[in-house]
Design a protein around this nucleic acid. Structure first.
Length: 190
DNA sequence: CTAGTGATCCGCT
DNA sequence: GCGGATCACTAGA
């Protein structure tokens, strides 16, 4: 059966959590689907928003694991991260793409788009389709409106690919992007 | 298919 | 003032 992830499930290193989240289900107010692409970020590495240390904007990533870190991207998009490791460290996992399974019509309305493949194929698209705003900043992932459901035990093993992260200019060689192999809902092929 | 561009805003130097 | 953890759209090969 589906198991709701507990905050302690997010207490490991960001790349470990990012890998483990592939195949899990993310719903916000019942809308969402299967996570098929993630990226890990950590304070010790210069591409991360928390690399410079604690600031008002990134404070959620220095808080307890298992909460949402939301940021504005390019002045336009809201992007969703899961805080991980331990309180005070500064690490998170960016949700980059989802295979839509719940609330397709709501997501189509929010996105103003027909093509299911592009509904949640990218962090900005995920934010728009799931209705992410600053209201979700710091919110616990095991409480409404969030539901993060583990991959079912009897589910066929998911094959996870990894590669360099997208859209960054620092630490470009770290293979901290993870994806469901062969999924047509990725933001880009590996 | 790739390359280029504008939109739009905020955190930080 | 600069430059993004992006996207949609256009032009051209």
């Amino acid at each position: 059966m589906l198991r709701l992830l507990h905050p302690r499930d997010f207490s490991l290193d960001a790349p470990v959590v990012a890998h483990a989240l592939i195949g899990a289900t993310l719903l916000v107010d019942g809308v969402g689907g299967i996570i098929v692409e993630t990226e890990a970020y950590d304070r010790t590495e210069p591409a991360s928003h928390c690399h410079p240390g604690l600031t008002p904007r990134n404070q959620a990533m220095f808080g307890p694991p298992g909460r949402a870190y939301v940021y504005r991207s390019y002045g336009i998009h809201w992007c969703l991260n899961f805080v991980c490791r331990e309180e005070g460290h500064g690490a998170g996992v960016l949700i980059r793409a989802i295979q839509p399974t719940h609330g397709l019509e709501i997501m189509r309305q929010r996105r103003g788009l027909e093509d299911e493949r592009l509904l949640c194929a990218g962090p900005g698209r995920v934010g728009q389709a799931l209705g992410i705003t600053l209201d979700h900043y710091g919110a616990p992932l095991d409480e409404p409106p969030f539901q993060v459901l583990a991959t079912p035990e009897n589910h066929p093993a998911v094959e996870v690919q990894s590669g360099p992260r997208i859209g960054i200019s620092k630490a470009v060689d770290l293979p901290w992007r993870f994806g469901l192999a062969g999924s047509r809902f990725l933001s880009r092929r590996f």
